[in-house]
């Protein structure tokens, strides 16, 4: 009898140990793709990952072919892509953050209202819309009326993609605030708008900031919607109304041209590091600025 109990308990311990082991194994497995990707990009891209990547525009196919024929590194870099990504992203941020935050505030402050529920559902739906569809719609809305591909069209597409995340994170972080904070502000005779702007939003700032950063990192690598809106450009362009390149667009171009294919790796590595950097920043801010 006794022996029986002991052996079943041993069996249980063994079983839970195995289960724990399997969990660890699977957790480790999920990490593998990230490291394999990083390793692969580093291995293939390090040669081209040099100063000129940041200071020179993308080479033409001819220049690349020439360099390859003589056994040299492909000249040039992706400066036009970097500046394009920065231009498109920063305009997308300027469009998406105020709208997203205001909508999030509205949802958090009017949780029971029909309109709020409707908006919340729409925002969830928006998150599920394929990015190319958003790109095509923006093509119709912005590119056709302007009769030109442009950076701003790309920004509009990306800002639409950013909205759901910003709205959600704003709503969630405002809902976490104690209601007495708002009441205290109003009890001092503050107007509703100044209480929202000067107390609620600053108090929820770390959540808003993290959410916005994650939204930015989500859309940084988007390619499909930019193909039909920003199009691409061979030189550095700071004009919001002209076609503009982006890192992701350049990667797509390099991929499609055998002469330029070697540049895929270094540009991808840069894009990945940029996105990882934003993510790490978001994480560290979320940790550091947490209130109480």
């Amino acid at each position: 009898m006794r022996k029986g109990i002991r052996s079943t308990s041993k069996y249980r311990v063994a079983k839970s140990k195995i289960f724990f082991g399997i969990m660890c194994l699977f957790s480790a497995l999920t990490m593998i793709p990230l490291f394999v990707i990083l390793w692969e990009l580093a291995k293939k891209g390090y040669k081209q990952f040099n100063l000129s990547l940041f200071t020179e525009v993308a080479p033409t196919s001819m220049e690349a072919m020439f360099a390859r024929a003589t056994g040299n590194l492909i000249p040039g870099g992706i400066l036009n892509g970097i500046t394009g990504t920065l231009l498109i992203l920063s305009m997308a941020i300027v469009i998406a953050i105020p709208i997203g935050i205001m909508t999030g505030v509205y949802l958090a402050e009017n949780q029971e209202k029909k309109l709020a529920n409707f908006v919340r559902h729409l925002s969830d739906l928006l998150q599920g819309i394929p990015s190319i569809v958003i790109g095509v719609v923006v093509y119709i809305w912005v590119v056709i009326p302007m009769s030109s591909y442009s950076a701003v069209a790309g920004s509009v597409a990306l800002s639409i993609m950013m909205l759901p995340m910003i709205i959600r994170s704003t709503e969630e972080s405002l809902k976490m605030l104690p209601v007495t904070l708002k009441e205290a502000g109003l009890a001092l005779g503050g107007s509703y708008s100044s209480v929202v702007m000067r107390i609620l939003i600053p108090s929820a700032f770390s959540g808003l900031f993290t959410g916005s950063l994650l939204a930015i990192s989500r859309v940084t690598g988007e390619t499909a919607p930019l193909l039909v809106t920003a199009l691409g450009a061979a030189s550095v362009n700071w004009d919001a109304t002209s076609p503009t390149s982006a890192i992701s667009l350049l990667i797509w171009e390099f991929y499609n041209d055998p002469n330029l294919a070697d540049l895929v790796w270094s540009s991808s590595l840069l894009l990945l590091l940029f996105v990882l950097g934003i993510n790490l920043l978001a994480k560290s801010i979320a940790k550091k600025w947490k209130i109480q």
């Binding site: 502000g185 001092l188 005779g189 503050g190 107007s191 100044s194 209480v195 000067r198 107390i199």
Partner: peptide, 8 residues
């Protein structure tokens, strides 16, 4: 000073 700030 919050009261003053909130009242602009």
């Amino acid at each position: 000073l919050a009261g003053y700030m909130l009242n602009n």
